[in-house]
């Protein structure tokens, strides 16, 4: 019996599932991370120093401990507590929190970029505090930081590959399994790399384009 079978078209479905899982967990992390990041960024832009130090310290830990360690720690921890989660849920939680840590800084600088006078002008028109947030600060601040947001989102999509270490069948892990069967690492990894590039490159070009357009 031949132990190693070459790559064939039958593997396409397997690879596609890996691709979809990568896209899926990235989207979940980007969406949840952005929503939480927007909230936390707003709280940080509005809060006094002591709350900021506290919150900043927590976010600092999320940013200063490598993602791969966070993933291993979290799964081991919930495993030890007796509530093992499936790899997708555990990966989503950590990846979302990690994304939130970066997004909150992006959004915070967005909120800070809205001039105080513009908010005063809005209030002088009779808008309530919440209305100025909803109609002035969020739309203006978020436009200013869109390119940075896109940058974080793209790097999250690359970081999602690390979720493979806790057993989630995303693209990288799919590729690893194919490699161990076919023994064709170069070709498969090149294909995987090409896929990441094909998603990232047009998007980052788009980000540059938006950035240039907003400078005018």
């Amino acid at each position: 019996m031949n132990l190693f079978t070459p790559l064939s078209w039958n593997d396409a479905g397997f690879i596609l599932a890996g691709i979809l899982n990568t896209v899926y967990i990235s989207l979940v992390a980007i969406i949840i991370g952005s929503i939480l990041g927007l909230l936390v960024g707003f709280i940080r832009a509005e809060s006094n120093k002591s709350i900021n130090v506290l919150l900043g310290g927590f976010l600092d830990i999320l940013r200063s401990v490598p993602l791969i360690i966070q993933l291993i720690l979290f799964t081991t921890f919930i495993g030890a507590m007796g509530y093992p989660l499936n790899p997708f849920v555990a990966g989503s939680i950590i990846l979302s929190l990690y994304t939130m840590a970066f997004m909150s800084e992006v959004f915070r600088s967005g909120f800070d970029s809205v001039p105080e006078n513009m908010v005063k002008a809005a209030r002088s028109l009779g808008m309530t505090y919440l209305q100025t947030v909803r109609y002035v600060r969020v739309p203006i601040g978020m436009r200013a930081v869109f390119p940075s947001w896109l940058g974080v989102a793209l790097s999250v999509r690359k970081d999602s590959a690390l979720v493979s270490v806790i057993g989630y069948m995303e693209l990288l892990r799919t590729a690893e399994q194919l490699i161990s069967r076919t023994q064709q690492p170069l070709m498969i990894l090149l294909g995987v790399g090409l896929f990441y590039f094909m998603i990232s490159y047009p998007l980052s070009r788009y980000g540059k384009y938006v950035e240039r357009k907003m400078e005018i």
Partner: peptide, 20 residues
């Protein structure tokens, strides 16, 4: 205050147009 401000239009040194 929000209701009162509707009666008091105010224009500042800086025009503060909403750019979006």
């Amino acid at each position: 205050i929000n209701e009162l401000r509707q009666n008091l239009g105010m224009v500042f040194q800086q025009w503060n147009s909403f750019p979006h």
